[in-house]
Every structure is written in structure tokens, then in C-alpha cells.
């Protein structure tokens, strides 16, 4: 049963993920790949909203991308992008947020950034890549291990994002503005 607040929170975080995609990528200097902040939104939605509302937020985001809104980083959108080589990563966003939320509800209910980091890394990186790599392997006609190798360049950036998400989520929890799941 979704309360009015649940609906509003999921919609706001779906819009946040879209807003993160419109920001120019953050260059980090020491990394070859600039960070696009979109998967940061996956981790934040899961860690702050929990499994149900976080997963729903990213589901709304993916639906609007499929509907043809240019919400992915670089102004891309449409079913074609979802069917493309990197489509599996986007399709796995809702699962990533759900897994992050599920783990956060079990193991990281406090403001401990280390626990939150682990939760964000498993949900926001492991779960998302578990969807993205097999998809890439099918679309590009390449063996699974080569597809995995091809996306390794993005892993360091994603760990930095998990760190940012963990520290931000911990600070928000300390601020005490977080709504409970059954408000």
C-alpha cells in the first residue's frame, strides 16, 4: 500500500535521477572516464527511500526514458537506447535501487558510512553490472568475460560514486529528515 508521501518521494527521486543526467559529467582528473552522476541517483534512492520506493523511483525513470524523454546522460532516450549495448545497465537501475534499499533496510539502518558504502556498492554496482554485462554480451555478440572486461574502466568511478552516496546518505540520516517506511 503506497501512501501519498510514498508516491511523492518516488516521483521526486525519479526526477532527481533525470536531473543528475542533465548535469555535465564530473571530470576527476586521475580517472580516464568522467563520472556521470546517474548511478549515484540509483544508490541514493535505494539508501534513502528503501527497496520499494527506491525501486519504484527508478522504474518511473526507466519508463519515461522508454517513452522517449531524453533523460539519460548526454540527452539520450527512447527504446532504442534501452535495446543498445549499454541498455542493460539502464534496465537494471530499478533492480539496483531495490537491492540497495533491501540491504540498507537490513544492514545499514544507521548513519554508518562504511555500512552504507558496502550496501551502495552491492546494489548500485554489483546488481547493475549483473544486468548490464550479459546484455552487452548479447548485443555486441561477444563472450561474457570479454564484455565484463570492456566495462572495467567504469568500475573505479562507480566506487567513487558509492562513496559519495554513502557519505551523503549518512549525513542526511544524521540530519533526521528521513521519512520512515510506514509514515
Amino acid at each position: 500500500m503506497l501512501s501519498t508521501r510514498d508516491l511523492v518521494l518516488s516521483a521526486l527521486f525519479a526526477a532527481l535521477v533525470a536531473g543528475l543526467g542533465m548535469a555535465p559529467p564530473i571530470p576527476l582528473g586521475f580517472l580516464p572516464v568522467p563520472i556521470t552522476a546517474q548511478s549515484l541517483g540509483v544508490m541514493l534512492a535505494g539508501a534513502l527511500l528503501g527497496a520499494k520506493r527506491g525501486g519504484l523511483a527508478l522504474l518511473l525513470f526507466v519508463l519515461l526514458v522508454a517513452a522517449g524523454l531524453p533523460l539519460l546522460a548526454g540527452g539520450r532516450g527512447g527504446v532504442g537506447v534501452l535495446m543498445g549495448p549499454s541498455g542493460g545497465f539502464v534496465l537494471a537501475f530499478p533492480v539496483g535501487a531495490f537491492v540497495t534499499g533491501l540491504l540498507a533496510e537490513r544492514f545499514a539502518t544507521g548513519a554508518n558510512p562504511i555500512r552504507l558504502f558496502a550496501v551502495c556498492a552491492i546494489g548500485g554496482i554489483l546488481a547493475v553490472y549483473a544486468g548490464g554485462i550479459p546484455w552487452l554480451s548479447v548485443v555486441a555478440g561477444m563472450p561474457l568475460e570479454k564484455a565484463a572486461l570492456a566495462v572495467m574502466a567504469f568500475i573505479p568511478g562507480d566506487f567513487i560514486k558509492a562513496g559519495i552516496a554513502a557519505f551523503a546518505a549518512a549525513a542526511v540520516r544524521r540530519a533526521g529528515v528521513l521519512p520512515t517506511a510506514h509514515a
Partner: peptide, 12 residues
């Protein structure tokens, strides 16, 4: 929720 999200995107 879809309508709310579309409305919130410019704001966010």
C-alpha cells in the same frame, strides 16, 4: 507518479 515525475524534472 508519472505525471508528478514529469512535472518535477525541470525543478530537479
Amino acid at each position: 507518479m508519472l505525471a508528478l515525475t514529469i512535472r518535477f524534472i525541470p525543478l530537479l
